[in-house]
Simulated assay, not measured.
Amino acid sequence: MRHALAARLSAATLVVAAVLLPSAAHADSRVTVANPAGQAKVDPTYATTLTVSGSGFQSIKGGHGGIYVFFGTVSPGWQPSKGGATGKDYYYVPDSESKDNQGFQRFVAFPGSDTASSANGGTMSASGGWSTRIVVPGATFQTYDRAGDVHTVDCRKVTCGVITVGAHGVANAHNETFTPVTVGSLGAAATSTPSAAPTAVATGPAATADPSAPAGPGTGSGPRPAGAAALEVDRASAVAGNVLAFSATGLPAGTQVSAVFDDGAAGAGPFLAGADGSLAGVITLPADTGAGTHELRLYGVAKPPSVSFAVQPAETTAEVTTPAAAEDDDTRAAWLFAGAAALVLLVAVARLGLRGWKGRRRAA
């Protein structure tokens, strides 16, 4: 009996130990950040290239998406898996989602993912490891909130760092991390080109840009365009309710701008100018836009470029009865009338015949 009791206690101890001890198969996700000098530090004036490496991430073979790697700042409870939202709980340097973007954002794909062809940050290993490089434009950058308003983040006043989240809208708590970095002069050996980031100073990620500061990144010490900024639209597609394509040239390299139609009737952005000062984008025209001349303007530079163009009313499809269709309707009506008349005549003849048969029967 004692031996049986001892055996049961030993088995129970093993079960409890198996439940309480953490599994070694799922290590916590970790991120390391290093500039060319090996420091987790960015220059306040010049663009800094950071090598970002991760380990212990949840790798889903053949899974949709992967992770995004951003540079920005976060608030408590910022994680998307906890209801956090970009432009409200965390802010990052905007960039296009194309594979050949400016390097401010990277996409690391899951192994065998259906979106692996668009990854510009490599592929995650089966064990959850990955490595990529991102560009930090400087200590300050402009970003947008949930309402589309422009804000300036100053990493000398708030804590900034590398953010990782699930890509393509997939919230995954295991792959959500924030790794802080410091801001300080690095010298030419650890930096690259002059920063194209906004020079306005703000008090935090949700602060509005200082109206006395330059309006955009091209008004400070960054690269300047050769000529004045110009804006053009695809006039053939300027129809109410349609998607309107536009393009701009002569913008400062790396400029972040937003497109506004008719002083707020519609908006889109942010859009980022390339190294040659050009960009392309689209904006949806409101369906109730009246026919006539309207305006599109780009905000984010000292002298916002604009263009006026004619908008056509929304196309309507009205049912038109062609002469041939009308003739067919008349012919069909005539045949129906003739058929009905023949039926009435047939019924009348039948009734007369029935009466005659009944009369002969009574006579008989």
Score class of each variant (00 low, 15 high):
L5V: 05
V16C: 14
V16D: 05
L20G: 02
P22I: 04
S23W: 13
A25Q: 08
H26R: 13
D28K: 13
S29F: 12
V31D: 09
A34M: 07
N35W: 05
P36L: 06
A37H: 02
P44I: 01
P44W: 00
T48Y: 06
T51Y: 07
S55L: 08
Q58V: 15
K61N: 14
H64K: 12
H64W: 07
S75L: 11
P76F: 03
P80V: 04
K82T: 06
G83L: 00
G84P: 15
A85G: 14
A85M: 07
A85Y: 04
G87H: 07
G87Q: 12
D89L: 14
Y90E: 10
Y91R: 06
V93H: 07
D95T: 04
E97Q: 05
S98W: 01
G112Y: 06
A116N: 05
S117C: 00
N120F: 01
G129L: 11
W130G: 04
I134W: 08
P137H: 01
D145W: 14
T152R: 12
D154S: 14
D154E: 04
K157M: 15
C160S: 13
I163V: 12
T164N: 14
H168P: 04
H168I: 11
H168T: 07
G169I: 06
N172G: 10
A173E: 11
H174I: 09
T177N: 09
P180M: 03
V181N: 15
T182V: 14
V183W: 10
L186N: 15
A188I: 01
A190C: 09
P194L: 00
S195D: 08
A196W: 11
A196D: 05
A197E: 06
T199G: 11
G204V: 07
P205T: 06
P205V: 05
P211V: 09
S212D: 10
A213S: 13
P214I: 02
P214H: 11
G216N: 03
T219E: 10
T219S: 10
T219V: 08
A228I: 03
V233S: 07
D234W: 00
R235Q: 05
S237M: 05
A238F: 02
V239I: 13
N242T: 03
V243K: 10
V243W: 09
L244K: 07
L244F: 05
A245H: 08
A248E: 01
A248K: 02
T249I: 03
G250N: 03
A253E: 02
V257T: 01
V257H: 07
D263F: 11
A268L: 05
F271R: 05
A273C: 00
A273M: 00
S278M: 02
L279V: 00
G281I: 02
G281Y: 01
I283H: 06
A287R: 07
D288R: 03
D288I: 03
G292A: 06
T293L: 14
E295G: 06
L296G: 09
R297M: 04
R297S: 15
R297L: 08
G300F: 03
A302D: 13
P304C: 01
P305S: 06
A310S: 13
Q312P: 09
A314D: 09
T317K: 10
T321A: 11
A324V: 00
E327R: 14
D330G: 08
A334I: 03
W335P: 04
V344E: 08
L345Y: 09
L346W: 12
A348T: 03
V349F: 11
L352P: 11
G353K: 05
G353R: 11
A363P: 04
A364S: 14
A364Y: 08
